[in-house]
């Protein structure tokens, strides 16, 4: 833990809901985590978790609208050693009860993104999206 990571810090950025935006999401996260001086291993894990959550928005919330011009917002906050990452989108409402990863021993393509998120983060919470947002996902990690 660095002094920087302990300080309060919030940044957010919007991205077009497209798979081509995922690289930009990762770049944004890496830049923020660089400022927070989060060590490399943890940074890699956090970037993966965030990119998987953003991918879920593209892949699932906008499954029926792949050419959308909608934006999703990623907000990274660090307060009192607690990292909170918020995702906002206006896609199909997510039913949290249906968000499950595949059985990890049942090896087949797909179903790993949510598993990675749950492995890396301390908490995964779907909140009610406040207008104009439909979905609001919050990932947290104690640093």
């Amino acid at each position: 833990m660095s002094e920087t990571a302990q300080s309060n810090h919030t940044e957010k950025k919007d991205f077009l809901v497209r798979s081509s935006s995922l690289k930009d999401v990762r770049t944004f996260c890496r830049e923020v985590f660089e400022k927070l001086q989060i060590e490399q291993n943890l940074k890699d894990e956090l970037v993966l978790a965030i990119a998987e959550a953003a991918q879920n928005i593209v892949k699932h919330a906008y499954k029926d609208d792949p050419q959308t011009d909608d934006k999703m917002v990623v907000q990274i906050s660090c307060k009192d050693n607690k990292l909170q990452i918020g995702f906002y989108d206006m896609g199909t409402p997510v039913d949290p009860n249906k968000v499950k990863h595949r059985e990890i021993d049942n090896v087949k393509p797909g179903g790993l993104g949510t598993f990675f998120i749950q492995e890396i983060m301390d908490a995964v919470e779907f909140k009610d999206g406040k207008k104009p947002w439909i979905n609001h996902l919050v990932l947290t990690k104690q640093l």
Binding site: L22, R26, V47, L48, A51, E52, Q55, V107, K108, P109, G110, L112, G113, F115, F116
Partner: peptide
């Protein structure tokens, strides 16, 4: 240097 769950799926599908 970076691979996500989609990339892992490609590895699994290739293997199978």
């Amino acid at each position: 240097q970076y691979m996500d769950s989609s990339g892992i799926s490609v590895l699994i599908e290739s293997h199978q």
